[in-house]
Design a protein around this nucleic acid. Structure first.
Lengths: 103, 103
DNA sequence: CGAATCGTTAACCACATGGTTAACCGTAGC
DNA sequence: GCTACGGTTAACCATGTGGTTAACGATTCG
């Protein structure tokens, strides 16, 4: 669902993880270093990203490799695109409409 | 902040309101009819949208007119665009990388 | 003026979220 | 085999979120 994507991205740490994974797959340790929270906290964020389908996990030996699942994030981006198209088309009209109405 | 935009859009009712406002400004009653929650609940959602700068309010008589503030939502959309650009460029590589590594 | 309308504020409640520490599990390396 | 490493699970806690009902405030209309 689109809602899940936005929820997943609504936390800065999770968005940070997604940004790093945008540069390529990485282990949990590498993808999540430097956020200043404990490992269990990271683990929970990863669970959210995985359950919403934004991130995929592949266990290899003792390392867990993470990578993006673009399709799901694409749904959210599509919603954004649609909204932006509306704004672009209507913002000026909207603005004028408001000014007119207040006369 | 970008974070606020995502938070604002992470709730289906708030996203529904934004969608309606995408078609033009509307009063609180019109923009929020049919969501199946009480008026105070609506009021809180509007507060979030307003505080994050996604929605603008203009009080006119006893009616409150709402309209979108595209600039703020644009920040979130930009973030999305950047991520998508990364995916587009790197998804195939990422995929290949994973397969290679598991040999 | 009095009543209806549009919307907010206040007080409260249940549950989700995000963090912690402590303990654990599976794999890798000496 | 034992220890170190990468990461998760369990239990707990504080705070935030999203909803409710009740009451109120301001504007419009008869």
């Amino acid at each position: 669902m689109v809602n899940d994507s936005f929820k997943a991205l609504s936390h800065p740490i999770r968005r940070g993880i997604v940004e790093r994974l945008g540069e390529g797959p990485a282990t949990v340790g590498d993808a999540t270093a430097g956020f200043g929270v404990s490992k269990p906290a990271i683990s929970k964020h990863l669970k959210v990203l995985e359950e919403t389908g934004v991130v995929r996990r592949e266990v290899r030996g003792r390392a867990h490799w993470l990578s993006l699942e673009p399709k799901v994030l694409g749904e959210a981006a599509d919603w954004m695109d649609r909204q932006r198209a509306l704004w672009g088309r209507l913002f000026d009209v909207v603005d004028e409409y408001l000014k007119e109405g207040s006369r």
